[in-house]
Design a protein around this nucleic acid. Structure first.
Lengths: 235, 235
DNA sequence: TAGCGTAATGTTGGATCCAATCAACGGCCG
DNA sequence: CGGCCGTTGATTGGATCCAACATTACGCTA
């Protein structure tokens, strides 16, 4: 009855890249959808039909349903009762919202973490900065940036705070392309990264937090200006 | 085969108190479990068997499964693959974690909200302070406290930030009883509330935030001392 | 008797089936 | 000719059924 699904879909590549061994199908579907959304392969507004997703990912509708519920709780998709799920829209307002959250959480995590950072954690962060210097792919760039920030916060304790910070840091990946497009070169971010690590390494939490706040404010500005320019040009 | 379930359960009262009309069974189950956990009727560590919950709430296992997934994303239950769900434990460390998050989010929300508060919102907050003065029930006290705080933040914009703040403010309800037990009288909190509202009403965001931070630090201290005293006495 | 391996049981995860709801289309009436 | 209402199709929500996994208990063996 129904023809084979369109063989070209943002999800096909994902199904192939099933690196880890997933314990449950729900976890697999959640990870696949989350990655596809964060990396921009599923743009905002894309309707997510359960049956189609199930077919493409090779599972039944049920793990899809449960995964959509979890993604809804993470604000990555919007679920309307009896009407289905759509990928959450991105917008200047949402970017500002996200940055307000990051601006609140991450300085707090950094302040808690700085005095407790171990030598290994500092070395790990330094290695991630180096890796970012030579990473051309924006997708991996987002991953490295996320890992670097989380490495600095890792000693904070407070697992829920860290999980929240990581979740919203990951959500920022959806805006990463705009960020890179807005600031011609991301070297400035790397300067911030190095300065932040240096301050944290010498235990100067105040200085590290100040740099981080400037870093976030700068990124927020860049994205806001990018959105403003885009909306001005497209209408 | 199986006898009727134990007629006395923390969930029975919940099923009866189905005030709003739930659009889906999943929403109903989620709200019922969330309220039962936050109000302490389901203590930490309680195993949540899907079939038993389904029977008690008068639905099948499926909405229970979806609700558990959403509660897992909110850190209210822990789900172990193939082993089931248990109510997340409370602890001094978790309370500190929660307060670190509140301490990060709420001052940010208040700072954004203060200059934009409307007359109605201020009046609403004032009314909630009055209501708290005469509320004897701890459960409703938590609700009023939550509503008051959110009323102050309501003008912040940034819906995701507000949703996060509300979620973690609600999670604090699990520790409310300890809080009330720790500080003999909650009048001091009410003083903070009044001072905060006054500062916000005159547009003094710095003062309001300072009071809020002290308010949260004081509450965190009280709970930490309560846990310390309890662990010292019980072992 | 202690330890290990196996089988039985209960619980969750996944698939399929059915019912309820929403959206769109078409017909009817004003 | 336009707007309202009923009907149809598609999609989700819910229920039931089956399979996989984990735990426990039991029995065998050393």
């Amino acid at each position: 009855m129904k023809p084979a699904p369109d063989p070209v879909s943002p999800l096909d590549s994902l199904a192939a890249a099933a690196g880890p061994r997933w314990r449950t199908a729900t976890e697999f579907v959640e990870a696949a959808l989350k990655a596809a959304i964060l990396e921009g392969r599923l743009p905002g507004g894309t309707p997510l039909r359960q049956e189609e997703l199930a077919e493409r990912l090779g599972v039944s509708r049920m793990p899809v349903r449960e995964a959509l519920r979890q993604l809804e709780a993470q604000a990555l998709v919007e679920v309307l009762p009896h009407r289905g799920a759509v990928v959450a829209e991105i917008s200047a307002a949402d970017a500002a919202d996200l940055f307000a959250i990051r601006r609140a959480l991450e300085p707090a995590a950094l302040r808690l973490s700085t005095p407790r950072l171990t030598q290994e954690q500092r070395a790990h962060a330094a290695a991630l900065i180096e890796a970012m210097d030579t990473e051309p792919d924006p997708g991996r760039m987002g991953l490295l940036n996320r890992q670097f920030h989380m490495a600095l916060y890792a000693a904070a304790g407070h697992p829920r705070l860290l999980a929240l910070a990581e979740q919203h840091l990951a959500a920022f990946d959806r805006y990463l392309r705009f960020h890179l497009a807005a600031q011609g070169r991301e070297r400035m971010a790397q300067q911030d990264h190095r300065a932040m690590l240096a301050a944290a390494a010498r235990g100067d939490a105040d200085a590290a937090v100040t740099i981080l706040e400037g870093h976030l404010d700068h990124a927020a500005d860049a994205i806001a200006r990018f959105f403003a320019a885009r909306s001005a040009s497209t209408r």
